[in-house]
């Protein structure tokens, strides 16, 4: 969570709003912000820290662990139409990598801008080659895109 808070400006530049959620109360969120996060980040957490004490939101998103009573590390990327474009769920001991989320945001925004006429192959980053799906590309991806180079 601190990594997201510390790099929040990178998400804002892409027009991405953030909501964090755990089963902790909003009161505990405040103390975590005041006692620890703002020391790690250098400022207060810049996005709403939501409370899902009963796990009701987590259950609908498939990330509530009933046995432990906590939520797994689930990251969901939602587009301006309210459609989930990407999700990543990890068990608690390993953290996410924000740069990968940012890469995916850029790729989904590129696809959206071109209304799906261009798609982003594995490892795509801005400036790299996109593919234009259509009859002419069938069986010809090998001529257009090199998985050993662009991944």
């Amino acid at each position: 969570m601190s990594a997201v808070a510390a790099n929040y400006n990178k998400l804002q530049e892409l027009g991405v709003e953030v909501i964090s959620i755990s089963v902790d109360s909003q009161f505990v969120h405040k103390i975590w912000n005041d006692q620890e996060l703002n020391k790690m980040v250098g400022h207060d957490v810049p996005f709403p820290m939501a409370s899902d004490g009963a796990g009701q939101v987590g259950k609908v998103y498939g990330v509530y662990d009933e046995n432990a009573g906590v939520e797994l590390r689930g990251r969901f990327l939602i587009d301006p139409d309210g459609v989930i474009q990407a999700m990543e769920v990890l068990t608690p001991p390993v953290g996410r990598k924000l740069d990968e989320t940012i890469r995916q945001v850029k790729a989904f925004q590129h696809v959206r801008k071109h209304k799906g006429a261009e798609v982003c192959p594995a490892g795509w980053e801005p400036g790299k080659k996109t593919l234009k799906p259509g009859p002419a590309l069938v069986g010809k991806v090998w001529q257009e895109w090199d998985p050993k180079k662009d991944h």
């Binding site: 969570m1 953030v18 909501i19 939501a50 998103y61 969901f76 990327l77 301006p80 309210g82």
Partner: peptide, 30 residues
């Protein structure tokens, strides 16, 4: 859901963010 946001307690509703890209992050605990 109730939330802590910039010194105050608020409600956060996903549909209020319609028209924007949103990242929701669940995590095990504070």
């Amino acid at each position: 859901a109730p939330a802590y946001f910039k010194g105050g307690f608020t409600q956060v509703k996903l549909s209020d963010f319609a028209g924007k890209w949103v990242m929701i992050c669940f995590y095990p605990g504070d």
